Amino acid sequence: MAKDSIAPAYWDGQEMLECVSVIPEAPNVSTFCFVAPSGATFDYLPGQFLTLELPVPGGPLHRTYTISSSPSRPVSITVTVKAQPGSVGTQWMRDNLRPGMRLKAIGPAGNFTSHHHPAEKFLFISAGSGITPMMSMLTYMYDIGRIPDVVFINCAKRPSDIVFRQRLEHIASRIDGIELRWVVEEGDRYQPWTGYQGTFNQLMLGLMAPDYLEREVFCCGPEPFMQAVREALTGLGFDMAHYHQESFHPSLAEEAKDATADDVIPDDAALAEIEFALSGVTQKCNETDTILSTARAAGLNIPSGCTFGVCGTCKIKKRSGQVHMVHNGGITDDDIEDGYVLACCSHPIGRVEVEI
């Protein structure tokens, strides 16, 4: 590097991201690649997510997507999305987002990463687009050059629906220690399938990863799928302290955290008041209303994604007052100690002042 050259700074979320390519991956699945126009690079942990602000008709819509690229390749960042029936944001991306367009983004964030749980052996289990954080983590392991020990299981409707299949098979062909296992519900017409077929179960797990009891397990997919995986592992005597899952849906298996100092429960009959200090707006509400819903009723916009305390998009600073906050991991203890709350799952107790 020349003496007068300056290495680009890390992207800090203030600069809009520019879409540079759109890659079809599977039916209804596309990868969108973004760069920072300034040349800033991206710093995140493999498995984390990004929240995009989508300019859909009727107002901006915030949607959270797992990053499918790896921080070992920091000049760009990608999200791989699947359009589900009735989806608004993802379908807008597939129909409208093209190279050259720019979007606002928030993040990266999230705790679902192998960096937080180092181990000698890993077991990645995913279904559908839940493969994206696994792709990020495995790519990182591949790029750093050390030989990993990973059993990678992905379940799909049919072989043609397997996302990243060719890329993963290429990686596995170049390095020892990666075992790929595909499970499909049915085959494709005129395409013979010799892999596993049916619904993922305990028998398959024992055949695909006989030493599963020794592995750190990461799971991502639809909630019914993850529940089936949890039940299979529990039934086999797996130590669930070594099980980790990612979901943008509230899990019935986990207790949400209570961030109030005194275990005060919102009263449906009690009135509250929220002062949005930066906007000069004060809005009355019930204690059972959230800060997010109250802001919307007052005509104010707080960026939000999941709306139940997972993604952290709606994190705001609380200046004064008390809230009852039940979240699902979208905010850290340090942030709470510094006075931050998640608007989507924080209920005002009495009068509360926030920086909006």
Score class of each variant (00 low, 15 high):
A232L: 00
Y142L: 00
P159I: 07
E15Q: 14
E223G: 00
P74Y: 10
D43N: 12
H327R: 03
P108H: 01
Y212L: 06
H115V: 04
H116N: 11
P303L: 05
L168I: 11
H62W: 13
P250I: 14
A109T: 08
T66A: 12
V184W: 09
V352C: 06
E275L: 11
M134G: 02
V281R: 09
R319H: 15
R146V: 15
V163A: 12
D149A: 10
C220V: 01
T199M: 12
F218Y: 03
T294H: 03
G187Y: 00
E15T: 15
V264D: 09
T90Q: 10
R319I: 12
H244W: 04
M93N: 04
V264N: 06
M240T: 03
A109D: 11
S38H: 09
P27M: 05
L103C: 01
G145L: 09
E169Y: 10
K257Y: 12
E186K: 14
D262I: 12
S76L: 11
E18M: 15
I331K: 07
L300M: 02
G128W: 03
D43M: 08
V184D: 04
A269N: 14
A269Q: 14
Y243C: 05
I356V: 14
P108C: 04
A7I: 11
L203S: 13
T113G: 03
E246C: 01
F112P: 03
L97P: 10
V79T: 08
G305D: 02
E273N: 11
T113A: 02
I291Q: 01
S293N: 13
S30D: 10
Q191L: 09
L50C: 04
S304G: 05
V264P: 00
D263P: 00
E337W: 06
L292I: 07
I349A: 06
C285Y: 06
F32M: 07
V150P: 01
T199Q: 12
S76I: 00
K121I: 05
C344H: 01
P46G: 04
E53G: 11
Q283F: 05
E273H: 11
E254K: 08
I131D: 04
H324V: 00
E231A: 10
S87H: 10
D333N: 13
N28K: 14
H170L: 13
W182L: 00
S293A: 15
H244G: 00
I6P: 00
G280R: 06
H116S: 10
S160Y: 05
S5Q: 13
K121W: 02
Q91H: 09
P118F: 02
F152Q: 03
G235E: 01
L17C: 02
V229Q: 04
T41L: 13
A2D: 15
E273R: 15
P57T: 09
E169L: 11
C19P: 06
L213P: 05
E275A: 14
A295P: 08
V217W: 06
A127C: 10
P210E: 01
N154T: 15
E353F: 01
A232E: 00
E275S: 13
K157S: 13
D268N: 10
I349T: 06
H347D: 09
S69Y: 08
D239E: 03
S87P: 02
R73I: 12
G309P: 08
S129M: 05
G100W: 12
T307Y: 09
I356R: 09
A109M: 08
P250T: 13
G237A: 00
A343V: 02
A36W: 07
C285V: 05
I175M: 15
I356K: 07
D149N: 14
